Deep mutational scan, measured.
Amino acid sequence: MSYSVTLTGPGPWGFRLQGGKDFNMPLTISRITPGSKAAQSQLSQGDLVVAIDGVNTDTMTHLEAQNKIKSASYNLSLTLQKS
């Protein structure tokens, strides 16, 4: 079951990613910084990142996902799936 979260910026957003197409692993939330915008939302460590700002992550490399997140200036919309 997927869910959506919109973090209001600017960054830093307070989470780290792992995985990506180049690692043959789905993009997942690997760490959440305590007290951060991510920590105050529904994000959980281990959640799968399905889309970033409406763009499906199935074919994204780790770097492409990082760049997509960094390019979000004020709002960052994520679609996630609980692990």
Score class of each variant (00 low, 15 high):
residue 56 N to I: 11
residue 19 G to Q: 03
residue 42 Q to C: 09
residue 18 Q to D: 12
residue 69 I to F: 04
residue 48 L to R: 11
residue 53 D to Y: 03
residue 80 L to C: 15
residue 29 I to P: 00
residue 55 V to S: 10
residue 14 G to I: 00
residue 82 K to G: 14
residue 79 T to E: 13
residue 49 V to A: 02
residue 66 Q to D: 14
residue 18 Q to N: 15
residue 38 A to I: 03
residue 46 G to R: 04
residue 19 G to E: 03
residue 37 K to L: 12
residue 14 G to E: 03
residue 19 G to M: 01
residue 38 A to N: 02
residue 24 N to V: 05
residue 7 L to A: 00
residue 32 I to A: 01
residue 46 G to I: 00
residue 24 N to M: 07
residue 40 Q to W: 07
residue 77 S to V: 14
residue 3 Y to C: 08
residue 83 S to T: 12
residue 59 T to A: 13
residue 38 A to Y: 02
residue 47 D to R: 01
residue 71 S to G: 13
residue 70 K to W: 08
residue 16 R to F: 14
residue 63 L to Q: 13
residue 66 Q to N: 13
residue 72 A to V: 15
residue 25 M to H: 10
residue 53 D to K: 03
residue 24 N to E: 09
residue 58 D to R: 09
residue 65 A to C: 09
residue 63 L to A: 15
residue 3 Y to N: 06
residue 45 Q to T: 13
residue 65 A to V: 11
residue 78 L to Y: 00
residue 28 T to C: 08
residue 68 K to Q: 11
residue 78 L to E: 01
residue 76 L to P: 02
residue 52 I to K: 00
residue 57 T to I: 04
residue 83 S to W: 08
residue 82 K to N: 08
residue 43 L to I: 10
residue 64 E to G: 06
residue 36 S to A: 05
residue 51 A to W: 03
residue 11 G to F: 05
residue 54 G to E: 07
residue 63 L to K: 14
residue 46 G to W: 05
residue 50 V to S: 09
residue 35 G to N: 15
residue 43 L to M: 15
residue 28 T to G: 06
residue 35 G to D: 08
residue 72 A to Q: 14
residue 39 A to E: 14
residue 55 V to E: 14
residue 12 P to C: 06
residue 20 G to Q: 02
residue 34 P to I: 06
residue 17 L to A: 04
residue 20 G to N: 03
residue 36 S to G: 13
residue 68 K to F: 09
residue 82 K to Y: 11
residue 13 W to D: 02
residue 23 F to M: 11
residue 73 S to Q: 14
residue 75 N to H: 13
residue 48 L to M: 13
residue 33 T to V: 12
residue 49 V to H: 01
residue 75 N to F: 10
residue 60 M to K: 02
residue 28 T to D: 02
residue 38 A to W: 02
residue 82 K to F: 06
residue 45 Q to H: 07
residue 22 D to V: 03
residue 22 D to A: 05
residue 63 L to T: 13
residue 10 P to V: 07
residue 31 R to N: 13
residue 44 S to I: 07
residue 75 N to T: 15
residue 65 A to I: 06
residue 31 R to M: 12
residue 23 F to W: 10
residue 36 S to K: 03
residue 60 M to I: 05
residue 13 W to S: 03
residue 30 S to M: 09
residue 77 S to K: 15
residue 75 N to M: 12
